[in-house]
Design a binder for these strands. Structure first.
Lengths: 201, 201
DNA sequence: GAATTTATAGAACGATCGTTCGTTTATGTC
DNA sequence: GACATAAACGAACGATCGTTCTATAAATTC
């Protein structure tokens, strides 16, 4: 059981970075076969259907995200430090993972948000998991006494995602060189507003 | 020169709402002909190429956005009131315009952000114009003395866009019923942080 | 109402799509 | 090394894609 898995992963790698550019629904088996120097049918056999290939790409994206963004950040002790590590890793995970064309999951979210089916379900699953991870990380910062006890953790995570999305768009489409800086400014403002009050001035 | 323009607009209307669901690159002349009860070639003749049709859809989107979001808001006197009107109109412009599948422009931004060509240029043009309109509206609120003089207007607009994007995603994909409320919470926090200080408490 | 321009239809093109099938080549096992 | 299994190929399928061409129908102009 060695060879099969190996080439399957190679295909998936290529599909992953291709999807980053043309979107998950823009994937084409013909083009993918060309890039991997395989026959269409040989490649196809690894997945059984195009949809299954697309699903595999989405799952791959989630897994890499967890590896590249969440896992390293979670080595930090819980609290604002960890939260900030998530943000920093998140902001350039498209560089870290092989994503020449930007975040696959967010692109897929826009593609499938109103097309019912397994693909949308998978995207939803991924983004829900992300949201939950963010909420938890924020909650840990509350527990650690670094954010106010009455912090609305869902609201906090919601706003973090907004910062991420606009940063991606500004950087990629508008070529805004200040995007990352602005993202951190926004994040710091978010933290400041929910931080425990220190002393009056 | 009556009939031609009329059917062209009818096609565009259909293409607009279709693109809202399947994306601008997901548009198909065959399906569009079916929906408008025209022949493929008859429909095609109005645009000359698929790309021209897609461009027309993007321009249509920009125009409707200006009509539905910006124009009504600009009837308010300049300042925070107008700014808030922009946000409110913006948040549900997908309901106001015929956009069953969400904001065409933002979806297109994710589709084309790394595919050079006229389509990406058009998306960029639209989003740049939007950004500029936002910055100006914020600047007017500064002039009106409602936001601090040292307000970073670009930063403000940047964060507004983030709020919009995450709201769309939360509402559409995650079916979050609180999305709109959270958007307003985030916006109010934004305003509060940049508002002119009233009195110490 | 005839003439002329404009709009639409119909059929066909080559290309590509995802998928199926039968065959051949490579791999792993005894 | 023979055998069984798995992996990859090549050719072809029907469907759909965007596009082109020619002919008919409708609208506009005189």
């Amino acid at each position: 059981m060695g060879k099969g898995e190996h080439t399957r992963q190679a295909i998936l790698d290529e599909a992953f970075s291709l999807a980053s550019c043309v979107g998950v629904s823009g994937l084409s088996i013909g083009i993918l076969a060309e890039r991997t120097k395989m026959s269409k049918s040989g490649l196809f056999a690894h997945f059984g259907s195009k949809e299954e290939l697309q699903l595999a790409v989405l799952r791959e994206a989630q897994q890499r995200f967890a590896e590249v963004v969440l896992r390293p950040a979670f080595r930090q002790p819980r609290g604002l430090g960890r939260l900030r590590a998530v943000v920093v890793n998140w902001l350039d995970w498209t560089r870290e993972a092989n994503l020449p064309g930007g975040c696959v999951i967010n692109a897929a979210a826009a593609e499938f948000d109103d097309q019912p089916g397994p693909l949308r379900d998978e995207v939803r699953r991924g983004l829900t998991a992300l949201r939950r991870a963010l909420v938890e990380t924020v909650a840990k910062a509350v527990e650690a006494g670094e954010l106010r006890a009455e912090t609305d953790t869902e609201q906090f995570a919601f706003e973090m995602e907004g910062i991420y999305q606009v940063t991606q768009q500004s950087r990629r489409l508008l070529n805004d060189p200040d995007a990352d800086r602005r993202a951190l400014v926004a994040f710091d403002r978010l933290v400041r507003d929910y931080a425990v009050p220190t002393e009056k001035e």
